[in-house]
Design a protein around this nucleic acid. Structure first.
Lengths: 187, 187
DNA sequence: GTCTATAGTTAGATAGAC
DNA sequence: GTCTATCTAACTATAGAC
């Protein structure tokens, strides 16, 4: 796999490095070409264009993230699950501020540009998974009877906003927000 | 003023209309030129470039918003002020989803691109004004003794996140989030 | 202050040989 | 699958007349 996908992966690695450093919009294919060592032809052999590279990176990141969270023991309780998700978000965002910023940029683009549709679909899929989970907690009477859209906004909104402005969140603030997230939706 | 700034304003009007419809990144100066009726020369007489147009629009919007909020009677209590701000954000965002999206796009750009520095400064200024206000409430014992960064994330984070995903928020959800915002920071 | 005309640059993308 | 060479299009920005 490594030998076959060498070029493919080297393009993605170079693109990610550049996107993290200077953002997606300010990165040109020419830069990706020179940094990766690949040629224009190779790049267009593997990818339809610049947006397609961003989508591939998003998919890889999501895949890696999914693999990680699958290894963590399934917490059946709503409280543990919600706290763990906010905790994870704040830890991850604090550890990877550039990646968080890139995700913000791509998220905004995904809302309006057709080329980023796969990212939008991924986000909707994750949203629906959370929705199903929240529905079960609601049946159990563990959480407030509100829509998942509102609930998830209460749960991750503060963490997301804080990361967006501060980029790095202290342990103390993280613990505080984790508890507040649960307080906001528990019944 | 209207006669002097006719061209200036017509350029901004055309730019705003285009930015709202197709986003900042997907709008070219050529489009602004043809829509406004102005010529390239005029545009570059008034503005340094495309980012400068966005900055001017941001300033005009902030100026209008400041004028409006100044007319509202000063609510001395922390509860009224915080509830009013969340209420206003959700009302405004729901009424102007395209404008909210544009602000999101510009906000992200402001964090990394030098040309948008004035927007970044404006945001920091607003943040500091809130900080001062929160400090007085803290002295009065009305709100939790937490940093303004965390407090503001708790207050507007959910509203912001919900607007970002849903674009339009129902009256019921709005009232709910307004109350939750106050609950999150009250002592 | 506003215009026309165009320079100068860079972008994304393609064609065809190997 | 990878390469070189090249294309077209689009952009921002400037120069100079009125």
């Amino acid at each position: 796999m490594a030998s076959e996908n060498n070029r493919y992966q080297s393009i993605l690695d170079a693109a990610l490095e550049l996107f993290l450093k200077q953002g997606y919009a300010n990165t040109s294919i020419a830069q990706i070409r020179s940094k990766s060592g690949a040629t224009t032809g190779s790049i267009y052999h593997f990818f339809k264009g610049k947006p397609d590279i961003a989508v591939a990176l998003w998919d890889q990141a999501v895949a890696g993230w999914t693999r990680e969270t699958r290894n963590t023991p399934q917490s059946p309780s709503a409280e543990d699950t919600i706290k763990a998700s906010v905790n994870g978000l704040l830890r991850w965002g604090s550890a990877n501020p550039d990646l968080f910023r890139l995700f913000e940029e791509l998220k905004v683009k995904a809302q309006s540009e057709e080329d980023f549709a796969p990212i939008k679909q991924q986000m909707e899929k994750v949203h629906m998974q959370g929705e199903a989970l929240y529905a079960t907690w609601q049946v159990l009477g563990a959480v407030k009877p509100i829509s998942w859209s509102v609930a998830s906004a209460l749960i991750v909104g503060p963490a997301y906003t804080l990361l967006s402005t501060e980029r790095v969140v202290s342990d103390k603030d993280r613990e505080f927000l984790v508890n507040m997230a649960w307080e906001a939706v528990k019944k």
